[in-house]
Design a binder for these strands. Structure first.
Lengths: 119, 119
DNA sequence: AACCTATAAGCGAAGATGCGCATATAAGCG
DNA sequence: CGCTTATATGCGCATCTTCGCTTATAGGTT
């Protein structure tokens, strides 16, 4: 039961729903998520971790990058239903569409580029 | 999106998952829920309200009683998937089984009986 | 009307959550 | 090795949640 509550809690946050929306498109690194959602590195990293801890995501390392993706195979049975529900619920959502659009333009470079933009 | 988050929040609490588990059996009044889950009246009422506000439940009045049930027809499309996921996730769960068992013994009388038992 | 009873709602305390800032860790490169 | 970059994490604060206590509301009974 604790696990189920944890899974639901993981989904009960706008940032994390938006992240899941991105990962339904493709595997992402932290910096792509922060670019697409226009959020801080801390926020992107923390929320990806939470989704991972809850059991929704798979994570692999590639050099400096942490690549997260939806763990289709490893997920418990009902997790798939939850992801499906999230997918349905976000269909046509304005923000979700915009996020996906920005993801297409995002590059696999990290917060360094943000710093450059800042000054 | 706000609505989706609200729905997920409604499901991210053990008490509310247990309530949903009961309502998957049958329509219940507040006092039956408090008896089956062995929780306070306030707690039963509040959490039923939250599930109702989120859009999962239907409520009808019958005299003094408020009768809650899962709103199969009125629910948005993806809500059904969520309820299904909850159902799957609780299958075989010890506490969920016990709650259903106690529900069978519960009577449609309110906290008054609790007061009698107490004093 | 006076009095039960079932449920809802205001209030405040304890705990949980989200996030920015600063810092740590770790991989890659000169 | 020292520097840069991508990501993770400790800390503190503001906010939100949950829940019990108490009181309000409203239907029912006598």
């Amino acid at each position: 039961m604790r696990e189920v509550v944890k899974a639901m809690k993981a989904l009960s946050d706008e940032t994390r729903l938006r992240i899941l929306n991105l990962l339904l498109e493709r595997e992402c690194c932290v910096c792509e998520v922060m670019q697409a959602l226009e959020i801080s590195q801390t926020r992107a990293s923390r929320n990806l971790s939470m989704l991972h801890d809850a059991g929704f995501l798979r994570m692999r390392k590639d050099g400096l990058w942490s690549l997260y993706s939806i763990d289709q195979e490893g997920m418990d049975d009902y997790f798939a239903d939850l992801v499906e529900a999230v997918k349905k619920s976000l269909e046509g959502n304005e923000l979700a569409v915009l996020d996906r659009k920005r993801l297409r333009k995002a590059e696999r470079v990290g917060p360094g580029c943000v710093r450059k933009l800042a000054g």
